[in-house]
Amino acid sequence: MAITDQAPPAAAVRDPEQAERLRYRLYSLAIVAVILAAWEIAPRAGLVSPIILPAFSQVAAALWSLVQTDFFLRHFSVTLTEILVGFVLGTAIGLMLGIALAVWPTAKRIAYPFVVGFQAIPKIVFAPLFIAWFGFGQSSKVVMAVVISFFPVLINTMVGLESVPDDARKLMRSLKATPMQTFRKVSLPHALPVIFAGVKAALTFAVIGAIVGEFVGASEGLGYLVELYNHQLRIDRVFAVVVVLAFIGAGGYFLLEWLDRKLIFWRSDDNR
């Protein structure tokens, strides 16, 4: 009997696809070039005061001199540690709570209203409290990062685990699978793409948490540096630190994106 393979012939599709991707990459680069040019020209032409917006080249120079100093490296590693520890703890807590609420209906019924209520609070208001509770050091920033980053992981884990198709559950029941087997073989892998979306959001939130914590009260870290240089009106350095923070966020995001593709290889191409 004839079998029809409806998978698209890969080689035929690749080339136009690749050409298109290249074209859009060029568009992106063009936009970046225009923005950088405007950034360079506007302060030099006197359209904006260099105190408000230093020229791009000045920022680049400030960044270059900054990254070569030891004290910058110290502040950088302080903030990076806060972000990473906060992100990992927040993700772990979100994952565990999400699993607990998804597999244990009683827990969900009891705890879910509190979870939603907690999420309704703008958690940044806790920052001064955390400083009071956990001190000026790194721990208060880590706690801040955890508190705002665990939630997207929790929600996505719960939603992902609960979206397992009924037929898949029924199949496992018809095989007399244990709840653990169903969880490991079906539910968790099924939920993984959704969980990962939450993890990516958690990273962004962890960066915000650490920086906000430093704004409110710190003696080191990149957020502290931003505050310090802002007071000193060294705006070129403020921008330089912002660029560094952008690189941290983007770097982490792309790393997770890469991991996502490796881990969730079965996702269809058009979702990427």
Binding site: P165, D167, A168, K170, L171, M172, S174, L175, K176, A177, Q181, K185, V186, P189, I264, F265, W266
Partner: peptide, 26 residues
């Protein structure tokens, strides 16, 4: 007793062979 549904209910992260072997694992 084996059950077959209207939808294939395959696990997209498993190959054809791994899908077929899933009940044996259970």
């Amino acid at each position: 007793v084996g059950f077959m549904f209207q939808t294939p209910v395959l696990l997209p992260w498993r190959t054809v062979e791994k899908n077929v072997l899933m009940p044996a694992e259970v």
